[in-house]
Design a protein around this nucleic acid. Structure first.
Length: 308
DNA sequence: AGGATAGCCTGCGGGC
DNA sequence: TGCCCGCAGGCTATCC
């Protein structure tokens, strides 16, 4: 569900709510939503999730209990709660909980006196201020369970994990995108430009909505072979990726159905979409009906006149 | 190598 | 009102 703009809005709102908070206690509702180091690779697949359903040991401190939340970071569509253990035998130690929201995941700040949603809440952190006053809870909720939580021991482990992703799409440049679209032997990628934009190893943060929006603004048919685009077209595309993402962040993200930030606030970036969800409607530039098809296994919309 | 397919889940809207 | 179908912002495993 959420792409980079929505995840960035979640990051900001979670950070505002929990920065510096002390984690009094935690509760993990579903063990299979958590992946620990040494668990079956990734934890995404059905097989590895099944393996996780067996009871497996984790300490509350692996989920930040007893520590303070020092930062909330984002790379692409992934979030990380970075904690420190200020006192005790693990003083100075780190812990990181990486959060992927998948399609329907939410992180919500629940102030004192508010009630958490009654369903699909998989993880709760009870928080206190630095002064020790209870301030509320942070919850992770995910009806479809396509998201998940990964416990990592250190920020170095987080950096290593994020190094497997491409550069954050908010900062993608034409020259970096150009080089990422060629394989090792300088062979241009044969895959469609849309599939390449969706590949988180190429660049991190673009999903189905913003891939279509960026291609539209760049005048590029999403079905075009990635390696067939000129350097000038890649420069333009990188610029439009940055533009549509930054503009959507400023508009609060796209709320199609589920997305809200940590405070429950919906976004308005969906009002800016020129092609996503507008198959068959008139192109906002030329007025011709927008075409649609499945590209890279995803519903895709483009203008047959403005994009080539 | 990269495309196509199926699968992981729940919930919603449309058509009947 | 209810049932069935398709579809959804992400990502993976498997097969060709």
């Amino acid at each position: 569900m959420p792409e980079l703009p929505e995840v960035e809005r979640v990051r900001r709102s979670v950070e505002a709510a929990v920065l510096g908070a002390r984690v009094e206690r935690v509760r993990l509702g579903r063990r299979d939503m958590l992946v620990m180091p040494g668990d079956p690779e990734g934890g995404w697949s059905r097989a590895s999730r099944d393996a996780l359903s067996k009871p497996k040991r984790y300490r509350a401190s692996d989920l930040l209990a007893g520590g303070t939340i020092e930062r909330v970071e984002r790379h692409g569509k992934q979030l990380a709660l970075v904690g420190e253990q200020p006192v005790g035998e693990h003083a100075g130690g780190e812990a990181v909980v990486l959060v992927h929201l998948g399609m329907t995941g939410q992180l919500r700040a629940m102030p004192n006196g508010t009630r958490s949603p009654g369903d699909h809440v998989h993880m709760t952190w009870w928080l206190r201020s630095r002064a020790g006053e209870p301030t509320g809870r942070l919850i992770f909720r995910d009806p479809r369970r396509f998201g998940g939580l990964w416990s990592l021991p250190t920020r170095a482990a987080l950096a290593e994990r994020w190094s497997e992703l491409g550069p954050d799409a908010l900062e993608i440049t034409g020259s970096v995108l150009w080089s990422r679209l060629r394989a090792r032997n300088d062979q241009p990628k044969r895959t469609s430009i849309k599939a390449a934009l969706l590949d988180q190893r190429v660049l991190a943060g673009v999903g189905n909505i913003y891939a279509d929006e960026a291609c539209f603004r760049a005048g590029i048919d999403p079905r075009r072979q990635a390696g067939s685009l000129s350097r000038a077209q890649i420069d333009r595309l990188a610029r439009e990726v940055r533009f549509v993402l930054a503009r959507a962040v400023a508009a609060g993200g796209s709320t199609l159905r589920d997305y809200v930030d940590a405070n429950g606030t919906a976004g308005e970036a969906q009002l800016l979409h020129a092609v996503y969800g507008r198959a068959g409607l008139a192109c906002v530039v030329c007025g011709r009906p927008l075409s649609s098809d499945r590209v890279a296994q995803r519903a895709t919309v483009w203008c047959p006149r403005c994009q080539s």
